[in-house]
Amino acid sequence: MLARIGLPQPFLSLVLFIVWQLLSDGISGGSIVMGLILAWVLPQVTRGFWPERPAIVKGWLVPLYILRVLLDIVVASLSVARLVLSTRKPRPAFISYPISLEHPLAITMLASTISLTPGTVSTDVSDDQRILLIHALDVDDEQDIIDTIRRRYEKPLQEIFQ
């Protein structure tokens, strides 16, 4: 229904509208009109770049997930800080992580989360979107890191994108 009146991406349109209100100097009649125009035109123009429809099933779990990730980011920075300031050499490793998520947006969120959390940066996704290559800064046990990521981030994401 929404696609027929020119809103193929309702969430994108909503986000664009809100961001425009934040960018403009206070909400006024002009900013609302301009926000509506942008929310209508930009998804139309960029339609070709969005091959699939977005599929957030349980949207109310997203804030919980973001909160957990924010807490982990603080912990991650502390552990990286300790390693940077110590004289010990880091023990880096490349780890192949088998992904069980299906949706491209879910994989993007998982990869971004991994980049922002303890000692890991996601470097590449294989072409068939089955394996994620992770660079870890300081590892004792590769399997331990894989298990932590699966338990802490992939399970909640799986619940959000069924």
Binding site: I73, V74, A76, S77, V80, A81, V84, K89, P90, P92, S115, L116, G119, V121, T123, H135, L137
Partner: peptide, 18 residues
């Protein structure tokens, strides 16, 4: 002071952002 590019990548993405 990190020894190679991949280890250098870790510090700015996390610590600087925070």
């Amino acid at each position: 002071r990190m020894p190679d590019f991949y280890t250098r990548l870790h510090a700015p993405t996390k610590a600087t952002t925070v």
